[in-house]
Computed example of a mutant assay.
Amino acid sequence: MSESLATQRIKASYGDAAVLTAVLIGALVAVGLGVFGKVHEPQFFSVSVAGFSSGTAVKAWLATLSVALGLFQLVSAFAMYRLIPGGRAPAWMGAAHVWSGRLAVLASVPVAVHCLYALGFSETDSRVLFHSLFGCLFYGIFVTKMILLTRKGLRGWVIPIAGGLLFFVLVYVWLTSALWFFQTSGITF
């Protein structure tokens, strides 16, 4: 039995409200992080890990790990949505997708904490300004996507768009930090 048009409209309206609510909460997170980074007095400390030449090298490699895991997220999402040749994704792909996302964000947290607490939100040049903006945006989009994943009845394009935005912003943050570090300091540990 098919649903009535009125029922379909109510469900779509609920889904749209859920998306708007999630986006607003994510925006508050992004703005809150930016405000904290701007008003907080930077501590200019760096935690180095044994085996790495500096705290900045640690951050660059953790960010690179996040991007590598994010790339797996992209490929596995394409496989699960059947956007790459080969038919159905293997049964393990869903769990690997979830865990690679968790690990990507987990690897990014020490980097973000260091950036916000030790350096703060900065606009010394355009690279640093956009890195600060996109770094805050990354966590706002992450929160938005996590909220959306718990909602039923969303339009089919909502989660892929949120995931794609999250990946794009992560890559941009990496380009303005880790890649810049590797280009100026060489690929060092």
Rank of each mutant, 00 (worst) to 15 (best):
T188D: 12
G37Y: 05
A50L: 11
L154M: 05
Y172Q: 07
S126A: 10
K152D: 15
E41L: 10
V113W: 10
L175A: 11
G86V: 00
V143S: 13
L179S: 08
V58C: 14
R102H: 07
V158Y: 14
Y117V: 11
L69W: 01
W180D: 15
Y139G: 08
T144V: 01
S126Q: 09
A162E: 02
G140A: 06
A95L: 12
G86S: 04
K11N: 10
G26T: 00
Y172V: 02
F181E: 15
T124P: 03
A17I: 00
M1G: 13
Q43E: 15
H40P: 00
V67F: 10
L165S: 03
A112E: 14
L20F: 08
F52Q: 13
E3G: 03
V98D: 09
L33K: 04
I159H: 07
S66W: 02
S126G: 03
L137T: 03
A107R: 01
F52G: 03
G94P: 00
L133D: 01
M93I: 05
S66Q: 06
M1K: 06
L148K: 02
L74D: 04
F181L: 07
F52W: 15
L129R: 01
G186Y: 03
F182E: 15
V67Q: 03
S126L: 11
K145N: 12
G55H: 02
S53C: 05
L133M: 06
S177L: 07
A112P: 07
R82Y: 02
S66H: 03
K145P: 00
G32Q: 10
L116P: 00
V173P: 13
S185H: 09
G101E: 10
A63N: 10
G51I: 07
L148E: 04
T124F: 15
Y14N: 08
C115G: 05
A178D: 10
T184W: 10
L71T: 06
K38F: 09
G34C: 04
L74K: 03
A96D: 05
M80P: 04
Y14I: 04
V105H: 04
T7A: 15
F167Y: 06
F130M: 12
Y14L: 11
G163I: 01
R82W: 03
S122A: 13
P85I: 05
A162M: 04
G26F: 00
Q43P: 00
L20P: 00
F181K: 02
F142W: 12
T7G: 07
S100N: 11
